[in-house]
Design a protein around this nucleic acid. Structure first.
Lengths: 168, 168
DNA sequence: ATTAATTTTCAATAAATTTTGAAAATTCGG
DNA sequence: CCGAATTTTCAAAATTTATTGAAAATTAAT
């Protein structure tokens, strides 16, 4: 397979993949493009490669920057802004985990804390089932939260260390 | 907070949560409703509680069954079908991981295998960056795959065992 | 300060996804 | 086998989400 074709497949699959994870297609595609580009690209480069509008490109680049996955690069003597993606995949994963933890897991745990205090007689099976379900989700969520903290702080690839611990 | 209100909040947040994970709102809400319901519910119960149409209810229940998160229950002497959700959250998580692994991670790894074989001179930085990126994603993906296998096979809560290993 | 290059915004539009509801299919008791 | 109850399907409609593109804002060189 030729590079051009492989690149297109990579970008398009990464985009489809993203949609299964609540990330919009274009954002994932821009990320994929930057991941496989050796040098920083401009907004115009990205627009052209992916055949998307200026506004769309701009908004999604900014979103990638918010996620900490892409950064602006200023090339000396150049007026235009360039963009580049972190290439160390382990760092990318840690960054995504960190953000999703903050944006989703933590607010969910806060809500569960509140919901666990529901009024009512625990002998009522509706109350009991509700409280038990909420508690067990909360418990698991808190453990996941701690585990992910360890993961995010890990310098080297956490999965490797993990497997070693399991199999030794 | 009263049970009714807490339940509504739980269902609605679970739905919103789902949309961040590529799961449709209704499917997540039906799942939430069944999780906090002590007894199995019929399609009509679900339609009424969530105020959604018969078709929508039916399709999403079936999808939850495909995911292995909900099962049909036949109550003796009853013509209607009843539905119930697995209440053990650890089992729920394992089931979701198992499915997503099969549906997403594995096909992605297959694709990366193919893309890694791109033709071209590795001294060309475009080729090199592409191959390096694909390889490193593949490597991490394969490790994650193995780790998740361990997790899916774990009888008790994997996060707990995990943390213990880290802190001992 | 002027102006041209560049980036950002956002209302309008397009596309994708979800939901409805009625018709068709299936199931099951008698 | 009949018919009522129940489930399933799916085209059309509604809703949500993503994209466009032109105008506004910003930036930086002269």
């Amino acid at each position: 397979m030729k590079l051009i074709e492989a690149k297109q497949q990579f970008i398009s699959s990464w985009g489809a993949f993203g949609t299964h994870w609540g990330i919009n297609r274009t954002m994932a595609q821009i990320h994929a493009l930057l991941l496989v580009s050796p040098d920083p690209l401009t907004q115009d480069d990205i627009m052209e490669e992916l055949d998307i509008s200026r506004g769309n490109t701009n908004m999604n680049i900014r979103e990638l920057i918010n996620w900490g996955l892409v950064e602006r690069v200023l090339l000396q003597g150049e007026r235009k802004e360039y963009f580049t993606a972190e290439k160390d995949i382990w760092k990318v994963v840690k960054q995504i985990v960190k953000e999703r933890k903050k944006r989703e897991l933590e607010p969910m745990l806060q809500l569960l804390d509140k919901l666990e205090d529901v009024e009512g007689d625990k002998r009522d099976k509706h109350v009991k089932t509700f409280v038990d379900t909420v508690s067990s989700i909360k418990k698991l969520g808190k453990q996941a939260d701690k585990t992910l903290d360890v993961m995010v702080k890990a310098e080297e690839n956490w999965f490797v260390g993990n497997l070693l611990k399991f199999f030794k």
